[in-house]
Amino acid sequence: MERINLGSHHEDAAQFREQIRLESGVDERDCYQCGKCSAGCPVAFAMDYMPREIIRMLQLGLIDEVLSSHTIWLCSDCIACYTRCPRSVQLPQLMDALRIRAREKNLAAEKNIGMFGDLLLGLIKRFGRIFEMGLIITYNLKSRQPFKDVLLGPAILKRRKMGLLPHKIRSVDAVRKMFERVKEMESDTP
């Protein structure tokens, strides 16, 4: 890690932490750095910072370092950490809030993962249900990845595991309206 001047971070960091506490419902001050979360984290082997370190960095005000970490994207939301944490720190919820911020500030280290979530939501809004083959193809197109999973397509179709068209439910209007109402309600209450 680079040499860091902790003093210069304080003002912005305090505000950021306050915001993250509101959005995630997690207070980073609850964590007493025991490391139990990281000992049992199934993705720890691939992370650049341990889950415990992410919290420590927040406590110290190293906001950009947190937001540009791979860790927040590699967390697979398995909830093992929260289940075991002696302080009931909801790390998965914290990771969620940090991912949203990282994308807003254009610091996301793993761009594909966030885009994938958007695509899936778009599909639910349009069809009411998800059509997996469709989403895998769209994913590969937009990320300009060579059709990786689509190579599995014929094998999947052979087992008659996917229909050819998305299942559009008749009450898709109800679902679309739900998306719109949620958006309205959330812009009403800041």
Partner: peptide, 9 residues
């Protein structure tokens, strides 16, 4: 006419 639960995203 059930709809997707929103899964993990």
């Amino acid at each position: 006419e059930w709809n997707c639960c929103g899964a993990s995203f």
